[in-house]
Design a protein around this nucleic acid. Structure first.
Lengths: 229, 229
DNA sequence: ACCTGAACACCGTTCAAGT
DNA sequence: ACCTGAACACCGTTCAAGT
């Protein structure tokens, strides 16, 4: 099965050749992003993208092997455009920056969390934030495996928070959701007792969760430092 | 828009009436769960469910107002069947039990994380684990809002880990995913340097992340205790 | 109150044919 | 190498009609 990535130049002669090599793929990805941002991820069909770019549906299959391939390229593109490395010396600040950037990207492109969660795209597309995380945690005294695990924890958390905030169809923020559903609730005393603010502060929720995780990492660091001094 | 929840008995006379009130809905949910477990969530269509239950597609719409309504009922059902309260006095043990149960449920029903992530279902369906979390954290010295935030952190983490483990279409575990994709990677030195184990230990990854979060909560507790003694 | 049949407006993808 | 047109095998949902 031919993975339609960069069109592999078989002839080594005449590489630039004057032709707009790959330009079409770039254009299509850009058009797909635009469509997703404007009308939501579920509005992106092969037919809709074809129409938006003035071409037949089947023409798209010369540039992407499947819709899944297209979506994964879209996710990859969005993440590649973002600078996750804030250059901060302190690992806490660096991680806050990295996943704050990811969160911002998700809010600017509300379809992105769903894309990354659904497709197995996450790993392949998310090397940017992964690299930053692994490097930031080097002085912390974790094994490489543990640092990868921290990465998966942070990206899972960030994506789920962002998805929750920008789910267009539902439109109910947590406070409202809980209030709406708990009426019928039976035996959920603590849930029913909850007094929630009028508006849900998504940013503060995110920062709070991030702080807990970073504190957990610091705790881990202290433990391993006291084990081997 | 009529939400097709429990068929609201308009006549207060003759409530039991001998008829199998709601049995059909229960049967359909059970059949949907079976279909999802056997063939994956994407194989569940209204037509397929109708065929599996020996009825016309349109008959389903007498019991569910839409496919979304059906899926949300499925998620709710699965979560209702689970006992998240382990009855542990120690809040750490209690939370470990609660989200360990949720993780187990997701592994037994691989379609569940996707269901909960996609639909805005999470809140409505997940009052069980929410209740346990809120109660477990009562002695920890957090505000109610903070405890809700911890809940969203933990459920987001748990679902994303479980989803990653049981994504059927992809089939590549993290070690393999990273190895596969990083070849083409440019400038991801730390990622390329990674030496990963042959098999990914999902359970240990989950436990590690959970520990970090619980440590973070404890840290938060210590801080608030030192603020007001 | 519940079920059916036909129809509408969509999907992703294959395949043979064009240039 | 790239694009087209027709077709296949699906979707969720509406609507009028049956009992």
């Amino acid at each position: 099965v031919a993975r339609a990535t960069a069109p592999s130049s078989k002839k080594s002669i005449d590489p630039p050749a004057g032709r707009r090599r790959g330009l079409s793929r770039d254009m299509l990805i850009a058009a797909a992003v635009k469509l997703i941002d404007q009308k939501g991820a579920e509005a992106l069909s092969m037919r809709a993208l074809a129409q938006a770019t003035g071409v037949t549906t089947m023409a798209l299959y010369n540039h992407f092997s499947s819709k899944r391939d297209l979506l994964s390229a879209v996710a990859q593109r969005l993440i590649e455009e973002t600078h996750f490395d804030g250059g901060h010396a302190d690992w806490r600040t660096q991680l806050r920056h990295c996943f704050g950037e990811l969160r911002g990207l998700c809010l600017r492109h509300p379809g992105l969390p769903g894309l990354l969660q659904q497709e197995g795209t996450t790993t392949g597309a998310a090397f940017g934030p992964m690299e930053v995380t692994l490097r930031a945690l080097e002085p912390v005294g974790m094994t490489a495996l543990e640092r990868v695990r921290v990465f998966y924890l942070l990206i899972g958390f960030t994506l789920s928070q962002a998805a929750y905030q920008s789910r267009p169809a539902v439109g109910l923020e947590p406070s409202e959701q809980i209030r709406t559903h708990r009426i019928a609730g039976r035996g959920f005393a603590a849930v029913e007792r909850l007094e929630l603010p009028q508006d849900w502060d998504f940013k503060e929720s995110f920062e709070f969760g991030l702080t807990l995780v970073l504190d957990g990492i610091e705790q881990n660091q202290r433990r391993s430092a006291s084990r081997d001094p």
